[in-house]
Amino acid sequence: MTSLPTSNDGRKLGLVIDLDICVGCHACAVNCKEWNTGGHSAPLTDENPYGADPQGVWFNRVHSFEAGDGDSGRTVHFPRSCLHCDEPACVTVCPTGASYKRESDGIVLVNADTCIGCKLCSWACPYGAREYDYADGVMKKCTMCIDRIENQHLPPEDRLPACVSTCPASARHFGDLGDPNSDVSLLVAERGGYDLMPEMGMQPVNKYLPPRASTRHDLETPASPPEAIPASTDTGSDFLNWVDRMLTR
């Protein structure tokens, strides 16, 4: 059924990604690939993996952005994966029922046995989270590592998504975002965690924590820049400088 579940017990398993801490090492993406190529949606097929133009299915990709200019500008490493939205258009557009949102915890999954590979779900997702496997002819996506988080064969401390367990900087957190008192919910409240592209109306479950304000006060741009005239425009005459100031206003 691709209609969304109307009731659940309020559990929303998801990730909280701390953009202040992420160092852009791509370990989460690599460990995701490593685990999931043998996991629920296995394999994550690679095409031409050792050639000049390798391509393949990844559930998690790390982009690097520059935000702002000058001293206040930042380089922000930005891991991007499925946000397991509350209003996932990828699920409702699915004509076969292969895409579904789990009633018990809100995780969005694809049934590879009924997916016809029409790709419409990937068109519906504004976040580019779904990737088509050209070799298998079906759509694949982040499973929130359901084969780890529920895996009784793993020691309890390892029952985390692969991306979370491997992050060397602890920039990724996993938990129940439907419970306002969970560690992840408290973290989101404390740090002002936000949704990506809220205007798309998908109501993502995963949250991003913003980079903290700079503590390098020596680099901070003063609130109002001094009105000094650049040396090159100094005419040597107070009157002409005044005219120049007037005209450049």
Binding site: W58, F65, A67, V76, F78, S122, Y132, Y134
Partner: peptide
């Protein structure tokens, strides 16, 4: 809005996650 980094300033892609194309870029 896609990155939520607008509070810092104008956002530009510095590095793509990989140097070849992927399905999302193709499609």
């Amino acid at each position: 809005s896609a990155t939520g980094l607008g509070v810092i300033g104008k956002v530009r892609l510095l590095e793509s996650p990989h140097n070849s194309e992927n399905y999302v870029m193709r499609e």
